[in-house]
Write a protein that binds this DNA or RNA. Structure first.
Lengths: 240, 240
DNA sequence: GCCCTACTTTGCGCTGGGACAACCAAAATA
DNA sequence: TATTTTGGTTGTCCCAGCGCAAAGTAGGGC
């Protein structure tokens, strides 16, 4: 999202925005133009809600730049981070999965830029644009697999391993090379990590402190840099 | 599956098998005939594997009768039950989600009957049969939602609540009315429940014993009857 | 520069529930 | 019927990690 910041204000709805993104990769210039013409673009500040759980799913979205955090609130009021969505992916596609309302809330984890279309266009997109449907469902499949892995982790692993996994996942999705390691490219708090792992900010803080002492990571306020990915992988409980 | 038992041996691949099942509900007699002609049917004993995690996804399946348990093994060798699939649903549809191998193992939780088709027919089905794709993805959406709920539970709830939720889910999917309550309609062990909730068979046993003392459930070897669904719902932590 | 708020760290006590172990009971098998 | 196997119960111990509390620190806003 650092780039988007520079690109604004008044960026153009340019074809190059969509060209190459999986759901649109098989389309020609004219088709992409068509799709863009029907889109509305919007910038979101860090921490703002794009849509909320339970609301009628009026639109679906393509995240061009930034980072989306999908969250749900438990009956007892605790927030759980269900997943993170990196730039270049569709989200809020309730329609594709037979829902009429959003099943979770989408909040930006960083300043973000997204296109959106009215949900009624979904069927048109599926019918008219080659590869759109297939690629979309690949994404859905990937997300399903990730959630599956989360369930496995929660069922079998200790908190320390789950934190390691959460961090590694973020680093893989969004790691930015920096002197001394790879940094997670958006602000992330101990609280956030606890909401991703089903733990508490206290335990997360203790764990990270421990890792920092041993040189595995280096961290600061809302910032985590992985210095020794290899040892973190070992900790995460992966076999091999 | 009790009915299947009676229906065999030598049941016929009759149109009525598929008529009315969501993915085929919009098709006419001829189309269903077409689909059936390409299917192979097979009966599975309780506890047998239909397909295994990691194997090439050669076929996709429709469970006609019985119950499928989707399981994965963690790196440390523990088994986790990811979900249960009731009769009337497609499963093993890796292709639909962009996978070429099965992402988990499917084991029958009871004697079962399933049709299957070669994966290469998937695209044909999607292209030729109205509603097939839409209905399939509705199912996928539902499953995604359920996994989402599992994650929420694991992140925020105590073991007792998770066990209550697991049992309620099974009862809703497959509850059979019986004198004194509603019974889960296939054999289920304490171990199974622990693999569904990320707990241990010891804790599950203790919990069920407690509930039985208070008249919430009545249970036996591989059998659970819910006597007081309402109080179980309260325990499960649902709000309202 | 200063304050104030939002993060973070750390100590301490407590407990849910996992690990281990022993025993019991019902099915399956012979 | 005897034997073995598989599933269930229960007791004891113990520790990972949560809850609570208190204090430290870095940014953002003015």
């Amino acid at each position: 999202m650092r780039n988007a910041k520079r690109a604004r204000p008044h960026f153009r709805l340019d074809e190059s925005l969509l060209t190459g993104l999986p759901p649109f990769s098989k389309l020609d210039s004219r088709q992409i133009r068509e799709i863009l013409d029907q889109a509305s673009a919007r910038r979101y500040d860090e921490g703002s809600a794009v849509f909320e759980e339970g609301r009628s799913a009026e639109r679906f979205f393509m995240l061009l730049d930034g980072y989306i955090r999908v969250v749900r609130i438990s009956p007892s009021g605790e927030q759980v981070i269900v997943m993170h969505i990196p730039g270049g992916q569709l989200f809020g596609i309730a329609k594709a999965l037979g829902h009429t309302t959003y099943p979770a809330t989408a909040v930006t984890a960083a300043e973000s830029l997204a296109l959106s279309w009215p949900t009624r266009l979904w069927d048109t997109f599926v019918a008219q644009y080659e590869g759109f449907s297939t690629e979309t469902y690949k994404t859905v499949g990937t997300r399903l697999g990730e959630m599956n892995n989360r369930i496995m982790e929660m069922a079998t692993q200790q908190v320390e391993q789950r934190i390691a996994n959460a961090i590694l996942r973020l680093v893989n999705q969004t790691g930015r090379k920096v002197e001394g390691g790879i940094e997670i490219d958006f602000p992330i708090t101990r609280q956030d990590l606890s909401e991703m792992t089903g733990s508490t900010l206290h335990t997360v803080s203790r764990t990270l402190s421990g890792w920092e002492k041993h040189g595995l990571i280096s961290s600061g306020r809302k910032r985590i840099t992985v210095c020794d990915p290899h040892r973190l992988v070992l900790l995460s409980g992966a076999t091999g």
